[in-house]
Design a protein around this nucleic acid. Structure first.
Lengths: 174, 174
DNA sequence: GTCTATATATCGATAGAC
DNA sequence: GTCTATCGATATATAGAC
């Protein structure tokens, strides 16, 4: 990967996350990355190819992130890490996740971040802790995650950090 | 409002909710509504004017909807209705809310559905019920609302109805 | 109020030189 | 690998007739 190629990817992610995939022109990307527009098409074929390259890179980083949760064994820790997940995401991978959530509304299939592994891990954790409806409890956590991520990534002003202690308390986590 | 004008509004909401505001051309709207493209601009000035007309109509309907919650006095009922809100929305006003949530990612200010009244109502309810951190509890409900709405409006397959009994149980609602 | 025709800008994408 | 120049399609928007 050349340096200009990398620059295109970085700038495109920034713009896509801010203005949306459709709201960003290849011309804008080229200008901000200080390369010719033609170069984008040489490297990535077309605009969608550029998007896929961005998503692929982001997913690789995301996988490592999620592995830390799924590989955890202590059920308490699993729930704790899960609850902290959206805050971590908003801190370190804000643009990527913003793009993912934006795309969900129109290209759900392309961004299918399978929730399977997370769900399985959660259900198992709640089972071990003796909860009566582990599937529903797991689903509720996913709802929280989506809600928190949604608010953290769109509304800039919201202060949600205070929710973490409350949630941990509700799930009896030290 | 003429019949064609109304037809444009209905069709545009459908298309905007499905393909996104930017992903929908005025030509598409005109064709599906079986009117000339020029008519859209005569009536609404420009594409953004069309969007605003749609949002205005939708908000009027939404206000009536939310009034039912805010005007409730029994704190238990308030929480119950709040929990049921996203399911009602997904049933009767799916397209409008889908559009609202989509736009949030790029035009947050234009869709600023003030959460103030809902928050105040919730905080008061939790206070009355003796919760220790009414503000955080209210915020958590908002998170839940956003999470549920997000999942209901994007993922078609998810069955989230089962969450309602679980949540009512958690909040000690009959 | 409505339609047809058209103007104008911008988009994604390609060709060819270096 | 990269740039310049350009094409064809499509987007929003306007003008003028009815």
């Amino acid at each position: 990967m050349t340096e200009k190629q990398a620059r295109i990817l970085i700038v495109a992610l920034q713009l896509f996350a801010k203005e949306g995939y459709r709201g960003t022109s290849t011309r804008q990307v080229a200008q901000k990355a200080e390369v010719s527009e033609g170069l984008i098409f040489r490297h990535f074929g077309n605009k969608e190819g550029l998007l896929h390259a961005i998503l692929k890179e982001g997913e690789e980083r995301a996988q490592k992130f999620m592995a830390k949760i799924v590989l955890e064994t202590d059920p308490q820790k699993i729930i704790e890490k899960m609850l902290e997940f959206p805050f971590e995401v908003a801190k370190y991978e804000k643009e990527y996740w913003k793009l993912i959530y934006m795309l969900k509304w129109q290209m759900a299939e392309k961004t299918a971040h399978s929730k399977g592994p997370l769900m399985r891990t959660l259900i198992h954790a709640f089972s071990e802790l003796g909860y009566e409806q582990p599937e529903q409890e797991a689903l509720l956590i996913l709802v929280y995650l989506d809600g928190i991520a949604h608010l953290l990534l769109t509304d800039e002003e919201h202060d949600l950090e205070g929710l973490l202690p409350l949630l941990k308390q509700k799930y009896n986590i030290a």
